[in-house]
Nucleic acid binder design. Structure first.
Lengths: 223, 223
DNA sequence: ACCTGAACACCGTTCAAGT
DNA sequence: ACCTGAACACCGTTCAAGT
C-alpha cells in the first residue's frame, strides 16, 4: 500500500537507502545487492548507478542512514565520563536495533562515515577533559570504544545477530551440542559453559556488564 | 622452483590452505576465491570441492592454519592476569603478521574455530582464578578481549592493514586532506589530529597503550 | 579416490542508447 | 536528468562423467 515499488514514483538516493536498510534488517547485509535492491524497487540494476557511483558509496549511504537515526542522549552538564558512557550506550542501542550495523562499521574506517565524524569529535573533546590531552591517544581510545561496542553486539549471547525465535532455539541447542562434544577432561570450563548456553540470556545484564568493562578501560590504570 | 603449481603433485587440504594463506597475506581475503585459488594451484575450481565441502569450510581451514602458527608464550608460574595479557599479546602478534586474520576472526564465532577453543578454555580458567567464577561472565570477558584485540589491529594507525610503503604515504596524505577539509571551528579536535596523522606512527607505543586499556577492563572497577 | 567439463544462478560494472 | 538493454568479467556450486 505504502510500499516503494507499488506507487511508482521517481527513484531517489533516500528511497534506495531506506529500502537497503529494510533489506539489511530483514535478511542481513549480504542480501543487500545492487540487483536485488533494484528488483525490490521495481527498477533496472543500472538505474542505481545514476544515484550512486558504485556499491561502496551505497553502503556508505546505508551506514550513514542507520546511524543518523541515533539521537544523542548525553547531557552536557554531566561529567565527561558519564557523557562518554552515554555515547557508547546510544551506539550500542543503534547496533542492537540494526543488527547489520555492527558488521558494517567494522570495515569502514571511522573517518569515512560522516555521522561518526561528529561523534568522534565530541568523544575527543570529552577525553581531553579527563586527561587524554594527546589527541593521538584520544583517537586510539575513541577507536577502542567504538570497536569495543561493536565487539559487544557481535558476540551477544543467544544467537548470531538476527533469527526468528524457532531458529534461535535450534541454534542454541546446536551450540550446546558442539560444546558438549569436547572432551570434558581437557575442557572443564567450556563443558560447564555448555550447560548455561541453552537458557535464554539476560541481555540487559550482559550489556551493562560489557559496557562497564569497556568504560573501565578508559579510566585510570589500577594494576 | 619449490612452488606448488610447478611441481605437480597431488592436491591436499594442507596445500590448498597454505596457498590460501599466502594469497590472503599478499592481496587480502577478498582475493581468496575458489576460482582464483584453483588457478594458482594449477587445477580446476571443482577440484577444491573434493577437499572442502564449500568455501566456508575452506575459510575455516585458513583461519585455523593462521592461528595454529601462534605459539603460546605465557608461563604457568606467572599470575593469571599476566598470563592473560600474554595470550592477548600473542593473538595481536598473529593478527599483525597476517592482516586478514582480524577480519576473518570478526565474523566466525569463537566457538567454531578449533584453535580458539583451546585458548578460550585456558582464558576461562585464568579468569576464574581472578574472580570471574560465573562462567558466563568469564565467556563475556574472553570475548571482550578477543574483540578488543581485533579492534586494535583493525584501527592500527598508519594504513588499513596492508599496502606497499608508497601507497601508505599517499593514503595518509589523503586521510589528512579529508580531515583538514572539515570546518575547523566545529571540529577543533579532529583538525588538530589531522596534523599528526601524516607522520609515521609509533606502533609499539600504540599497541602497549591499547593492550593496557584492554587489560584494565578485566581488572577491578575503579569508578 | 581424485579430478574435469559443462552448466546454472548469481554478482558488480560499463557503455551506448533511449526518453 | 533519469533510466534501459545488452554485454563483460567475475563469483560459488552441482552433477554427471572421466581416470
Amino acid at each position: 500500500l505504502y510500499s516503494c515499488q507499488v506507487v511508482t514514483e521517481k527513484l531517489s538516493r533516500a528511497a534506495v537507502v531506506e529500502r537497503a536498510a529494510k533489506l539489511a534488517d530483514a535478511e542481513g547485509v549480504e542480501a543487500v545487492t545492487i540487483r536485488r535492491l533494484a528488483q525490490e524497487l521495481g527498477v533496472t540494476p543500472m538505474a542505481l548507478y545514476w544515484h550512486f557511483k558504485n556499491k561502496e558509496e551505497l553502503i556508505f549511504g546505508l551506514v550513514d542512514h542507520l546511524l543518523a537515526e541515533v539521537t544523542a542522549t548525553r547531557r552536557p552538564e554531566d561529567p565527561p565520563l558519564t557523557q562518554l558512557r552515554a555515547m557508547v550506550e546510544t551506539l550500542v542501542a543503534a547496533m542492537r536495533e540494526h543488527p547489520s550495523l555492527a558488521g558494517l562499521l567494522h570495515m569502514k574506517d571511522q573517518g569515512e562515515v560522516p555521522s561518526l565524524t561528529r561523534a568522534t569529535e565530541d568523544a575527543l573533546e570529552l577525553l581531553a577533559r579527563i586527561g587524554y590531552t594527546d589527541v593521538r591517544e584520544g583517537y586510539a581510545v575513541a577507536s577502542y570504544l567504538l570497536h569495543g561496542a561493536i565487539g559487544l553486539v557481535s558476540t551477544e549471547p543467544g544467537c548470531p545477530t538476527f533469527m526468528n525465535p524457532e531458529q534461535a532455539i535450534e541454534w542454541r541447542r546446536q551450540k550446546r551440542r558442539n560444546l558438549e562434544a569436547l572432551p570434558a577432561a581437557e575442557y572443564p570450563m567450556l563443558t560447564e559453559f555448555a550447560s548455561t548456553v541453552e537458557q535464554p540470556p539476560d541481555l540487559e545484564h550482559y550489556y551493562t556488564f560489557g559496557i562497564d568493562m569497556l568504560m573501565r578501560g578508559v579510566g585510570p590504570a589500577t594494576s
